[in-house]
Computed example of a mutant assay.
Amino acid sequence: MSSIRSPVLRHLLAGSPRTLRASNQRRWAQVHDVRFLATTQQPRNVLEKYREKLDRKAREEGHGDIEALKSAYADKIKSLRKQADVVGVPPVNGVPPPPPPPTSPTSTSTSAPTSKAKPASTAAAAAAAAAAGGVESKSGTAPLSAILDLSKARMLPEKELAAIWKYHHATKPNTLCAVIPAATFERIESAAQKFPSFVLPVPHPDQGAEIHFLQWTWDAATRSSTVLFTQLAEYKARGEFAQPHTTVTHYTELKGEKGVVLMQGQVVEDRGVKMDEARWLVMCLQKFYGGWEGEVGGEGRRELLEWFGRGDSRFSVEKLLEEAERMG
């Protein structure tokens, strides 16, 4: 994960996560009638813990120090962070997955990695999928051709394609999916290219809210964009070693032909985030990045996104919580 230069984020990182969760505690408890599990894992300094082993590995491989070792493995580290490539989100229009259609172009030769797979295994699976689809991707993101038979998908009407995509993900654990209209995604992506990082709150009744950090990345080889979600406390503790708990990938390969963008993602187990929380984060992502054009409150959300991205002092966690409360 690349370094972040926003003064606002540096201010958030300097603050206490506990203080952020306690902010507006009473209001969150009154507004949100949902059950969430707070993350209480104490952060650890990974670099210090494994410094001796890293030093030894650097010497064994002929690198001068740990920094040289990190540089040599930079591409591999980046690839491993993007491997949870099958996550699902409720459709933008809120319609539940339909019953299975009579025929499906979904590929049976390539299965999506499960959340229990080890990172190295997932990376290998993604690389194999990319090779099978004839696409070389340094990011490790599997191409859409590894998920759908594109020759058959291109022959389907938009509604049938959407139905197949939703059905394909309906029974997969810890996954989210959506079919996003092309015009809607173009608004979202336009804002993302200007402001590729942001923070979002997840409400915890009786405990305030926990702040999560998101970052957009793009992969030209697979014509996709990916959003990585990480607890802000995790990012503060581990920096570039922080592991995302949710990864959401948008495929634009059929955008021109079918007028839709296919989205899927993965919620990683045992990282302190439940499916309901992941759905909330993706819904907030779409709303703050302009997915609902003309909606009441949209201007306030847009301002917060811009203020954060530009390091404007007008941005504050208090205002972020107030805006998120109105969406709840």
Results as ranks from 00 to 15, higher is better:
P119Q: 06
E160P: 00
P196Y: 01
P98G: 10
S145H: 00
A84N: 14
V89C: 13
V95T: 12
S197T: 15
A142F: 04
P113R: 07
V87W: 12
P119V: 06
I180Y: 02
S115G: 06
V179H: 07
A120H: 08
L69N: 04
P90G: 13
G133Y: 00
K166H: 14
I188E: 01
P98S: 08
A183I: 03
S115N: 06
R187D: 02
K194Q: 14
K172P: 01
S71G: 10
M155F: 01
G88H: 09
T106N: 08
V135S: 07
K70S: 11
K70E: 13
S145T: 06
D149R: 08
E67G: 09
A178G: 10
T141V: 13
H169D: 10
K152M: 05
A170K: 15
L156V: 00
F185G: 04
P181G: 08
G140W: 00
L80G: 05
T122L: 09
P105T: 07
A183N: 13
L161E: 05
S151C: 01
T171M: 08
I77H: 13
S115C: 06
D149A: 02
F195Y: 15
K116A: 11
V92Q: 08
A74I: 07
A132K: 14
V89I: 12
S190P: 01
A142S: 14
K76F: 13
T171G: 05
K78V: 05
P196W: 00
K70H: 12
N174H: 09
S190D: 05
M155L: 12
R81E: 00
A127C: 04
A130K: 05
K76T: 14
P105D: 01
R81P: 00
S121G: 06
K152N: 03
A128I: 03
N93V: 07
P143R: 02
A124F: 09
E160L: 08
A127T: 11
S79Y: 03
V95W: 02
P196L: 01
P99K: 09
A153P: 01
R187C: 02
G64S: 11
T184M: 04
S197W: 05
T122S: 14
G64W: 09
S111D: 06
Q193R: 15
L144D: 01
H169C: 10
V92C: 05
A120P: 03
T106V: 15
T122E: 08
L156N: 03
V92R: 09
I180S: 03
K82W: 10
A163I: 02
K194A: 13
L150C: 02
V179Q: 05
L69C: 05
K118S: 12
S151L: 03
I164F: 04
P91I: 03
Y73G: 07
P157Y: 04
T184L: 01
T106D: 09
Q193P: 01
K82V: 13
P100V: 11
L150A: 01
Y167S: 06
L150D: 01
C177R: 11
A162S: 14
Q83M: 15
V95E: 15
T108W: 06
P113K: 04
A192W: 03
A132L: 10
K172F: 12
P102M: 09
G134P: 04
K118D: 12
I77F: 14
E160A: 04
P102V: 11
S109V: 11
